[in-house]
Design a protein around this nucleic acid. Structure first.
Length: 871
RNA sequence: GGGCAUUUAGCUCAGUUGGUUAGAGCGUUGCAUUCACAUUGCAAAGGUCACUGGUUCGAGUCCAGUAAUGCCCACCA
């Protein structure tokens, strides 16, 4: 036994302990003691973007999720915390583009798509490695063997499968709509990614025939030939809907049409406006309502089109002043208000100012009814007609998914009620390319399975793999990053689970276990060794499990020796053949029929079956809509299950003055710097101490420092106890039964009991901060301050010496266990002082303890990480 | 404009279904220290629980209203 040093030195401990855990294999739930008997508990990690390094927000989510995972693991659950990273399409690409422009003054269009993608991938890879190693430093007990990436191969299959299914259901459609166009990144962005920024601009009042109209954007006004007013506006009651008015405008005379629409605000300005349907969402709606002409004025680079007459070809930024000047010369400028404050829509992922444009894009229809293919959701039957909106509302309203804190449920409903179709196509290059191919339509029929005829003589094909034949080109757009993120809870667990095997009655294949053929099936393709196929219940279609092919043998049916190789049910060859004939009447079964005999390994609990629906989704409230809502949408639709039972939303980490942390304010706390100075445990404890779910979290260096003191206190408590106990006592820990003799004994044991019960309940209820606080209180101010002081006298008295030793040890063990989820490193290290372990695989005996070879005493499954939670 | 929250000690915040004397961390003041720990211990000061009214035997907690603050959504041509 090594003497403990006077103070806890995290730097010496953390790497060593993390390696011990990795070597034990316990982060992978399949390796846990009695794994097969454990109930699953699953958290899928919200994948950090591969756009840089770890910040304090990552430290927070990693801490909370690790606490929950470690707690459940100790409670005997088959605890899976599945990690991953997100390619964050638009954010990553724009970051690389910004760097490129800064360094070389080049844009992505100076490279080929492949060259550019290579650069983005290199950046993403490097960023990924940094983030993963940083998560490990936080003590994350995630199962790295299952790590996923939103852009890796299994996820690509999931994305394409999801797209095709929704396309076939008519949920995904392509249409020309007004979309948020970012001329800077040259892509659309979804409504949720828009960020409004306040801006001050001149506001112009122009004479428009008999009316006065106002605008900040004269450059959009060329095509304005509709003048809109509220039907109840008394000032304009003499003008009739549809009335034509001749007037003089920018480039000459124009015939304007009066439109009465309630969208016009009588309070604003003159109460009259002209509309630009091609470049304003509201105007577009008005135009559609009245069946008006829609004309594009500005192209997607911000250049004026021929409709602008003499201004055509100019950039809108330059043209504005010239247009105003011209209108002024024509006497149409009434006045200019300088300093008009208004909001401008910008792209929050890259900063460009949004120019609404009408473009052909891909959308997910949230209001279209479709038959639910398969449902395990209470209150929704398989085959029932539903919409995505209804599904999203239902699972939260019925309490199938619980959101913590609860008031976010109201915000969630409010969002759903205002939800419009989700634009999922982006014109950037980094991401999942849309699995749709086009070619000019051929007169002959005979198009493939995934193809559809289109009215514009363009053939369109959607499938997981490219179409066969000449002349197909793939859609150049990529998918919104949240499309793949929406699949995250189930794509990480192996969905779509099976390789579909199409039956076409050409070959017979048999699968066997051991020497006996157990089942047979018909396929049109040979399955290779190492591949995995699935078996289903032929009636219900429910998944049984995976068959992993170990070997393949080809022969004819007649060659099968029923005695050694035969199906277990049959001894007579004719009877064997007859069974095939009954099953597959269309097949001409004879002794010459070719067969493939597969030897396989059967796995009947694939991850998806076992770990999905997951238990907890832990993430920031700021991505409730972006992500949580989209996961609910995608998961209910594709799997007929809920993605998770509980959504735990944490707040933003702020500084001690409640200010947002930002580089420009210089108040950023770098988690890695803090870890170096104070240790991971101190940072983790500071992050959850006194912070309730959903509230923003004030964090200061003083607080972290205080928690380092606590780690040290724990160290010294252990040190005191170890110094006062004879070595052989330590070996008998399981046999020690604390028997209270004094008042102090009774008091501490009853308080321990109370804190165990309360902390357990609080952890079960996701009140992590309260659990942390009461354990802290107990350890420091009850156990250390009171009982340890009392123990000094009790240990000196032979009457009370033994029970005091037992109680000290009993309490210490309980405290180490209770604190382990919160402060994993220091507790594991101290536990190791009680139960020394050698690194090695789980279950291997440790060779040495206390200088004595005691092979049978200590095993690696004595690591604290897998101890039973105290009761 | 619509919605959602917050208001408790000097500061930052807990306080789960109503129930003794409202708690913690940091900070402040005094004392102690050959003791496992000065990264310590003991003690103290500090609160009209934003305000007004109501329900109740009893309200920080429930209800209504007022005020201040913060966030989200929509967005004005």
């Amino acid at each position: 036994m090594n003497e403990l040093s006077k103070a806890y030195n995290h730097a010496e401990v953390e790497d060593k302990i993390y390696k011990l855990w990795i070597d034990s294999g316990y982060f992978n739930p399949d390796n846990l003691p009695n794994a097969e008997k454990r109930e699953p508990f699953t958290i899928i990690m919200p994948p950090p973007n591969v756009t840089g390094t770890l910040h304090i927000g990552h430290a927070l989510f990693a801490t909370i999720q690790d606490i929950l995972t470690r707690f459940k693991r100790m409670q005997g659950k088959k605890a899976l915390w599945l990690p991953g990273t997100d390619h964050a399409a638009i954010a990553t690409q724009s970051k690389v583009e910004a760097e490129l422009y800064k360094k070389e003054k080049k844009t992505r269009f100076d490279f080929s798509r492949e060259e550019f993608l290579k650069m983005v991938e290199d950046y993403a890879q490097q960023s990924h490695d940094t983030i993963i190693s940083q998560l490990k430093r936080l003590g994350a007990s995630a199962d790295w063997s299952r790590e996923a990436y939103t852009l890796d191969e299994p996820r690509t299959l999931a994305v394409r499968t999801a797209f095709k299914t929704m396309y076939d259901d008519g949920i995904i459609y392509r249409g020309a709509r007004i979309v948020n166009w970012d001329p800077k990144l040259k892509t659309t962005v979804s409504d949720d990614e828009i960020e409004y920024k306040q801006q001050t601009d001149p506001f112009f009042h122009f004479k428009y025939g008999p009316f006065e109209i106002g605008t900040v954007r004269p450059e959009t006004k060329f095509g304005d030939k509709y003048v809109v007013m509220h039907p109840d506006d008394k000032r304009y009651q003499n003008y009739k809907h549809g009335q034509k008015i001749e007037l003089e405008w920018i480039n000459g005379p124009l015939t304007a049409t009066v439109i009465k629409d309630e969208a016009a605000d009588m309070e604003f300005g003159s109460g009259v406006m002209t509309i630009t349907p091609a470049h304003s969402a509201i105007d577009f709606e008005i135009a559609k309502r009245h069946g008006l002409d829609i004309e594009q004025i500005i192209d997607d680079r911000g250049i004026l089109l021929p409709i602008a007459g003499e201004f055509a070809g100019q950039h809108i930024k330059k043209a504005r002043a010239l247009i105003v000047e011209k209108l002024q010369k024509k006497g149409l400028l009434v006045k200019t208000d300088e300093g008009y404050i208004h909001n401008v829509a910008t792209n929050s992922r890259g900063g460009g100012i949004i120019e609404p444009q009408i473009k052909e894009q891909w959308f997910i229809d949230v209001n279209r009814e479709f038959p639910m293919r398969h449902s395990e959701i209470a209150g929704i039957k398989s085959g029932q007609m539903v919409t995505l909106k209804q599904l999203m509302r239902h699972v939260v309203q019925e309490g199938l998914i619980k959101i913590i804190p609860e008031h976010f449920e109201k915000i969630y409903f409010h969002w759903i009620d205002n939800l419009r179709d989700w634009c999922i196509s982006r014109q950037i290059w980094y991401g999942h390319q849309i699995p749709v191919w086009y070619r000019a339509s051929l007169p002959s029929p005979g198009v493939g399975e995934g193809s559809r005829e289109r009215s514009d003589n363009q053939e369109i094909y959607c499938d997981i793999t490219p179409p066969k034949g000449e002349g197909w080109t793939q859609d150049t757009d990529t998918l919104d990053t949240w499309f793949s993120s929406g699949l995250w809870t189930f794509s990480t667990l192996g969905w779509p689970i099976e390789k579909t095997i199409d039956f076409d009655h050409k070959l017979v294949d048999l699968v066997k276990t051991g020497s006996k053929i157990k089942t047979y099936r018909l396929t049109n393709k040979q399955v290779a060794v190492g591949e995995t196929v699935t078996t289903h219940n032929s009636q219900s279609g429910q998944l049984f499990g995976y068959l992993k092919i170990k070997s393949v043998k080809q022969m004819t049916l007649g060659e099968i020796d029923l005695k050694t190789d035969g199906h277990e049910k049959y001894t007579d060859q004719q009877e064997f053949f007859n069974t095939f004939r009954n099953y597959y009447p269309a097949l001409d079964v004879s002794a010459n029929s070719p067969v493939w005999i597969y030897d396989f390994e059967y796995k009947n609990q694939p991850d998806l079956n076992l770990y999905h629906p997951t238990d907890v989704m832990e993430t920031g409230y700021d991505i409730l809509f972006f992500w949580v809502a989209r996961m609910i949408l995608m998961t209910t639709y594709h799997t007929g299950q809920i993605p998770f039972k509980t959504v735990y939303l944490h707040g933003l980490v702020r500084d001690k003055d409640r200010q947002k942390m930002s580089k420009s304010k210089g108040n950023v706390i770098d988690p890695l710097g803090v870890i170096d100075t104070y240790g991971t445990d101190a940072l983790r404890f500071a992050l959850i101490f006194s912070t309730a779910a959903g509230n923003d979290i004030p964090l200061s260096e003083d607080k972290i420092k205080g928690m380092k003191h606590f780690a040290n206190k724990l160290w010294n408590i252990s040190r005191y106890i170890l110094m006062n106990l004879p070595a052989n006592t330590k070996l008998q820990i399981p046999n020690l039964k604390p028997e209270p003799k004094t008042e102090a004994d009774k008091e501490i044991l009853s308080k321990l009991d109370a804190v165990i019960k309360s902390a357990t309940k609080n952890l079960d209820d996701f009140h992590l901060h309260e659990a942390a606080q009461e354990i802290y209180q107990f350890a420091w101010h009850e156990f250390a301050d009171v009982y340890i002081e009392a123990s000094k006298k009790q240990l000196a008295d032979t009457e009370t010496k033994q029970n005091t030793e037992a109680i000290l040890l009993h309490c210490l063990i309980a405290i180490l266990k209770l604190l382990h989820p919160f402060m994993p490193f220091v507790t594991e290290e101290l536990w190791g002082k009680l139960h020394p372990v050698k690194s090695g695989k789980a279950g291997q005996p440790s060779a040495e303890f206390n200088g004595v070879k005691e092979e049978k005493l200590v095993k690696n499954d004595d690591l604290l990480i897998v101890q039973d939670w105290p009761k």
